[in-house]
Protein backbone atom coordinates (compact mmCIF):
# COMPACT_ATOMS: atom_id res chain seq x y z
CA UNK A 1 0.00 0.00 0.00
CA UNK A 2 1.29 3.41 -0.78
CA UNK A 3 0.19 6.95 -0.08
CA UNK A 4 1.64 9.33 2.43
CA UNK A 5 -1.44 9.67 4.59
CA UNK A 6 -4.12 7.04 4.27
CA UNK A 7 -7.30 6.42 6.20
CA UNK A 8 -9.29 3.24 6.06
CA UNK A 9 -12.91 3.31 7.12
CA UNK A 10 -12.33 5.98 9.74
CA UNK A 11 -15.30 6.65 11.97
CA UNK A 12 -15.52 9.11 14.81
CA UNK A 13 -18.68 9.11 16.90
CA UNK A 14 -19.59 11.40 19.73
CA UNK A 15 -22.29 9.50 21.52
CA UNK A 16 -24.97 9.07 18.89
CA UNK A 17 -23.54 11.69 16.58
CA UNK A 18 -21.65 10.27 13.64
CA UNK A 19 -19.26 13.14 13.03
CA UNK A 20 -17.13 11.11 10.64
CA UNK A 21 -18.47 7.94 9.15
CA UNK A 22 -16.44 5.44 7.22
CA UNK A 23 -14.10 7.74 5.32
CA UNK A 24 -11.35 6.37 3.09
CA UNK A 25 -8.78 8.78 1.88
CA UNK A 26 -5.38 8.53 0.35
CA UNK A 27 -3.03 11.47 0.00
CA UNK A 28 -0.12 10.87 -2.35
CA UNK A 29 3.23 12.57 -1.85
CA UNK A 30 3.28 15.87 -3.71
CA UNK A 31 -0.49 16.36 -3.65
CA UNK A 32 -2.39 19.42 -2.67
CA UNK A 33 -5.40 17.63 -1.34
CA UNK A 34 -8.52 19.58 -0.47
CA UNK A 35 -11.38 18.53 1.77
CA UNK A 36 -14.58 20.45 1.28
CA UNK A 37 -18.07 20.11 2.57
CA UNK A 38 -20.90 22.11 4.10
CA UNK A 39 -20.70 23.34 7.69
CA UNK A 40 -20.87 20.49 10.15
CA UNK A 41 -19.83 17.92 7.58
CA UNK A 42 -17.12 16.60 9.90
CA UNK A 43 -14.13 18.06 8.12
CA UNK A 44 -12.40 19.39 11.20
CA UNK A 45 -13.20 16.27 13.18
CA UNK A 46 -11.66 14.21 10.43
CA UNK A 47 -8.61 16.44 10.56
CA UNK A 48 -8.35 16.04 14.29
CA UNK A 49 -8.54 12.29 13.92
CA UNK A 50 -5.69 12.38 11.41
CA UNK A 51 -3.51 14.49 13.67
CA UNK A 52 -4.25 12.52 16.82
CA UNK A 53 -6.36 14.97 18.81
CA UNK A 54 -9.28 12.54 18.61
CA UNK A 55 -8.99 8.81 18.40
CA UNK A 56 -11.04 7.14 15.67
CA UNK A 57 -13.97 5.08 16.94
CA UNK A 58 -13.36 2.57 14.16
CA UNK A 59 -10.96 2.37 11.30
CA UNK A 60 -7.29 3.10 10.90
CA UNK A 61 -5.12 6.01 9.97
CA UNK A 62 -1.81 5.27 8.31
CA UNK A 63 1.04 7.67 7.84
CA UNK A 64 3.91 6.38 5.68
CA UNK A 65 2.34 2.93 6.11
CA UNK A 66 2.57 3.21 9.88
CA UNK A 67 -0.57 2.86 11.94
CA UNK A 68 -1.02 6.13 13.81
CA UNK A 69 -4.64 5.70 14.90
CA UNK A 70 -3.83 5.40 18.58
CA UNK A 71 -0.74 7.52 18.79
CA UNK A 72 -0.55 10.70 20.81
CA UNK A 73 -0.60 14.05 19.14
CA UNK A 74 3.07 14.68 19.89
CA UNK A 75 4.14 11.34 18.51
CA UNK A 76 2.27 11.97 15.30
CA UNK A 77 3.88 15.38 15.00
CA UNK A 78 7.25 13.71 15.43
CA UNK A 79 6.52 11.44 12.48
CA UNK A 80 6.16 14.51 10.31
CA UNK A 81 2.59 15.72 10.42
CA UNK A 82 2.43 19.47 10.79
CA UNK A 83 -0.88 21.21 11.20
CA UNK A 84 -2.60 24.51 11.81
CA UNK A 85 -5.92 25.10 13.51
CA UNK A 86 -9.24 26.50 12.50
CA UNK A 87 -8.98 29.17 15.16
CA UNK A 88 -5.36 30.25 15.13
CA UNK A 89 -3.43 28.78 18.01
CA UNK A 90 -0.43 31.06 18.07
CA UNK A 91 1.73 31.79 21.04
CA UNK A 92 0.18 35.21 21.11
CA UNK A 93 2.47 36.83 23.59
CA UNK A 94 5.66 35.74 21.90
CA UNK A 95 7.31 37.38 18.95
CA UNK A 96 6.88 35.83 15.53
CA UNK A 97 10.49 34.69 15.56
CA UNK A 98 10.03 32.93 18.89
CA UNK A 99 6.89 31.29 17.55
CA UNK A 100 8.77 29.88 14.61
CA UNK A 101 11.71 28.88 16.79
CA UNK A 102 9.40 26.65 18.80
CA UNK A 103 8.47 25.16 15.46
CA UNK A 104 12.09 24.05 15.23
CA UNK A 105 11.64 22.01 18.40
CA UNK A 106 11.59 18.71 16.58
CA UNK A 107 14.63 19.48 14.49
CA UNK A 108 16.79 20.05 17.55
CA UNK A 109 17.99 17.86 20.37
CA UNK A 110 19.25 20.11 23.16
CA UNK A 111 18.49 18.68 26.57
CA UNK A 112 18.94 20.28 29.97
CA UNK A 113 22.54 19.18 30.24
CA UNK A 114 23.43 20.71 26.89
CA UNK A 115 21.64 23.91 27.73
CA UNK A 116 23.37 24.31 31.09
CA UNK A 117 26.89 23.67 29.84
CA UNK A 118 26.45 25.17 26.39
CA UNK A 119 27.77 22.07 24.70
CA UNK A 120 28.36 21.62 21.02
CA UNK A 121 24.81 20.30 20.53
CA UNK A 122 23.42 23.42 22.12
CA UNK A 123 25.40 25.77 19.90
CA UNK A 124 24.60 23.79 16.78
CA UNK A 125 20.92 23.68 17.69
CA UNK A 126 20.67 27.36 18.47
CA UNK A 127 22.32 28.19 15.19
CA UNK A 128 20.06 25.78 13.37
CA UNK A 129 16.94 27.19 15.02
CA UNK A 130 17.98 30.75 14.27
CA UNK A 131 18.82 30.07 10.64
CA UNK A 132 15.93 27.75 9.96
CA UNK A 133 13.38 30.12 11.43
CA UNK A 134 14.77 33.14 9.61
CA UNK A 135 14.74 31.17 6.40
CA UNK A 136 11.19 30.02 6.97
CA UNK A 137 10.11 33.57 7.72
CA UNK A 138 11.83 34.81 4.59
CA UNK A 139 10.11 32.21 2.47
CA UNK A 140 6.77 33.06 3.97
CA UNK A 141 7.37 36.77 3.45
CA UNK A 142 7.15 37.51 7.17
CA UNK A 143 10.62 38.88 7.74
CA UNK A 144 9.49 42.36 8.67
CA UNK A 145 7.30 40.98 11.46
CA UNK A 146 10.02 38.87 13.07
CA UNK A 147 10.14 40.90 16.27
CA UNK A 148 6.46 41.79 16.52
CA UNK A 149 4.26 40.10 19.08
CA UNK A 150 2.27 37.48 17.22
CA UNK A 151 -1.01 38.50 18.82
CA UNK A 152 -0.65 42.04 17.54
CA UNK A 153 -0.69 41.04 13.89
CA UNK A 154 -3.71 41.11 11.64
CA UNK A 155 -5.67 37.96 11.24
CA UNK A 156 -4.39 37.10 7.79
CA UNK A 157 -0.77 37.50 8.85
CA UNK A 158 -1.41 35.42 11.96
CA UNK A 159 -2.60 32.59 9.76
CA UNK A 160 0.56 32.87 7.75
CA UNK A 161 2.69 32.83 10.90
CA UNK A 162 0.94 29.67 11.96
CA UNK A 163 1.73 28.04 8.64
CA UNK A 164 5.33 29.21 8.84
CA UNK A 165 5.64 27.87 12.37
CA UNK A 166 4.40 24.52 11.22
CA UNK A 167 6.76 24.57 8.24
CA UNK A 168 9.72 25.18 10.53
CA UNK A 169 9.30 21.64 11.79
CA UNK A 170 9.88 20.38 8.22
CA UNK A 171 6.73 18.28 8.10
CA UNK A 172 6.23 15.59 5.50
CA UNK A 173 2.62 16.62 5.23
CA UNK A 174 1.22 20.03 6.08
CA UNK A 175 -2.38 20.01 7.24
CA UNK A 176 -4.16 23.34 7.05
CA UNK A 177 -7.55 23.85 8.65
CA UNK A 178 -9.29 26.63 6.71
CA UNK A 179 -6.14 28.60 5.97
CA UNK A 180 -7.93 31.33 4.06
CA UNK A 181 -10.65 32.01 6.63
CA UNK A 182 -10.73 35.65 7.61
CA UNK A 183 -8.47 36.74 4.79
CA UNK A 184 -9.34 39.32 2.18
CA UNK A 185 -9.09 38.57 -1.51
CA UNK A 186 -5.55 39.82 -1.94
CA UNK A 187 -4.30 37.84 1.03
CA UNK A 188 -6.13 34.78 -0.23
CA UNK A 189 -4.47 35.02 -3.60
CA UNK A 190 -1.09 35.53 -2.01
CA UNK A 191 -1.69 32.51 0.20
CA UNK A 192 -2.66 30.42 -2.79
CA UNK A 193 0.51 31.36 -4.61
CA UNK A 194 2.51 30.64 -1.50
CA UNK A 195 0.98 27.20 -1.13
CA UNK A 196 1.53 26.40 -4.79
CA UNK A 197 5.11 27.49 -4.50
CA UNK A 198 5.57 25.25 -1.47
CA UNK A 199 3.98 22.42 -3.35
CA UNK A 200 6.29 22.97 -6.29
CA UNK A 201 9.17 22.44 -3.87
CA UNK A 202 7.66 19.07 -3.02
CA UNK A 203 5.61 19.87 0.07
CA UNK A 204 2.53 17.69 0.42
CA UNK A 205 -0.44 19.69 1.62
CA UNK A 206 -3.83 18.64 2.95
CA UNK A 207 -6.29 21.44 3.49
CA UNK A 208 -9.84 22.17 4.48
CA UNK A 209 -11.41 25.19 2.94
CA UNK A 210 -14.74 26.91 2.45
CA UNK A 211 -13.64 29.22 -0.34
CA UNK A 212 -14.55 27.25 -3.46
CA UNK A 213 -12.49 29.36 -5.74
CA UNK A 214 -9.47 28.86 -3.57
CA UNK A 215 -9.90 25.10 -3.47
CA UNK A 216 -10.66 24.72 -7.16
CA UNK A 217 -7.63 26.72 -8.14
CA UNK A 218 -5.27 25.38 -5.59
CA UNK A 219 -5.87 21.67 -5.17
CA UNK A 220 -5.22 18.84 -7.55
CA UNK A 221 -7.46 16.39 -5.69
CA UNK A 222 -10.58 17.09 -3.73
CA UNK A 223 -12.68 15.05 -1.36
CA UNK A 224 -16.19 16.10 -0.47
CA UNK A 225 -17.70 15.27 2.90
CA UNK A 226 -21.32 15.59 3.85
CA UNK A 227 -22.84 14.52 7.19
CA UNK A 228 -19.59 12.77 7.96
CA UNK A 229 -19.62 10.64 4.85
CA UNK A 230 -17.49 10.89 1.79
CA UNK A 231 -19.68 11.59 -1.18
CA UNK A 232 -17.13 12.22 -3.88
CA UNK A 233 -13.44 12.34 -4.55
CA UNK A 234 -11.45 13.34 -7.61
CA UNK A 235 -9.98 16.16 -9.60
CA UNK A 236 -11.51 19.66 -9.25
CA UNK A 237 -13.26 19.32 -12.61
CA UNK A 238 -14.72 15.95 -11.69
CA UNK A 239 -15.91 17.13 -8.32
CA UNK A 240 -17.51 20.32 -9.55
CA UNK A 241 -19.30 18.35 -12.23
CA UNK A 242 -20.62 15.76 -9.84
CA UNK A 243 -24.38 15.96 -9.35
CA UNK A 244 -24.42 14.61 -5.84
CA UNK A 245 -21.89 17.20 -4.79
CA UNK A 246 -23.91 19.95 -6.32
CA UNK A 247 -27.11 18.98 -4.57
CA UNK A 248 -25.42 18.26 -1.26
CA UNK A 249 -22.98 21.08 -1.12
CA UNK A 250 -24.52 23.88 -3.09
CA UNK A 251 -28.08 23.18 -2.07
CA UNK A 252 -29.80 23.93 -5.36
CA UNK A 253 -28.69 23.54 -8.92
CA UNK A 254 -29.05 27.11 -9.94
CA UNK A 255 -27.08 28.33 -6.98
CA UNK A 256 -24.53 25.66 -7.67
CA UNK A 257 -24.07 26.87 -11.22
CA UNK A 258 -23.57 30.34 -9.94
CA UNK A 259 -20.74 29.30 -7.69
CA UNK A 260 -19.32 27.11 -10.35
CA UNK A 261 -19.25 30.04 -12.69
CA UNK A 262 -17.47 32.00 -10.01
CA UNK A 263 -15.00 29.23 -9.54
CA UNK A 264 -14.18 29.19 -13.20
CA UNK A 265 -13.57 32.91 -13.32
Amino acid sequence: MSGLLRTEGVCCYFGGLKAVDNVDMQVEPGDIFGIIGPNGAGKTTFFNVCSGIYKPTHGKVYFCDQDISNMSQEAISHLGVGRTFQTTQLFQFMSVLENVKIGCHMGTKTNMFDAIFHTKTYRADEQYAEEKSMETLRNAGLEQYANTLAGNLSYGIQRRVEIARSLASSPKILMLDEPAAGMNRLETDALRDFLKELNAKGQTILLIEHDMKFVMNCCNRIMVLNFGEKICEGSPEFVSGNKEVQTAYFGSRTFGKDVEANAEN
Binding site: I53, F91, Q92, M94, I102, T110, D125
Partner: peptide, 27 residues
Protein backbone atom coordinates in the same frame (compact mmCIF):
# COMPACT_ATOMS: atom_id res chain seq x y z
CA UNK B 1 20.82 29.31 30.11
CA UNK B 2 17.93 26.88 30.34
CA UNK B 3 15.32 29.47 29.58
CA UNK B 4 17.17 30.73 26.56
CA UNK B 5 17.41 27.31 25.04
CA UNK B 6 15.15 24.77 23.43
CA UNK B 7 14.17 23.46 26.86
CA UNK B 8 13.03 26.85 28.08
CA UNK B 9 11.20 27.53 24.86
CA UNK B 10 9.28 24.30 25.19
CA UNK B 11 8.29 25.26 28.75
CA UNK B 12 7.08 28.63 27.62
CA UNK B 13 5.19 27.13 24.70
CA UNK B 14 3.28 24.99 27.21
CA UNK B 15 2.45 28.07 29.21
CA UNK B 16 1.24 29.96 26.18
CA UNK B 17 -0.72 27.34 24.33
CA UNK B 18 -0.48 23.69 25.12
CA UNK B 19 -2.46 22.51 22.11
CA UNK B 20 -0.19 24.34 19.69
CA UNK B 21 2.88 23.11 21.54
CA UNK B 22 1.73 19.55 21.07
CA UNK B 23 1.06 20.07 17.40
CA UNK B 24 4.65 21.22 17.03
CA UNK B 25 5.91 18.03 18.59
CA UNK B 26 6.73 19.37 22.05
CA UNK B 27 6.37 16.38 24.33
Amino acid sequence: RLIHSRVGRSWMSIRENELAAKSLGVR
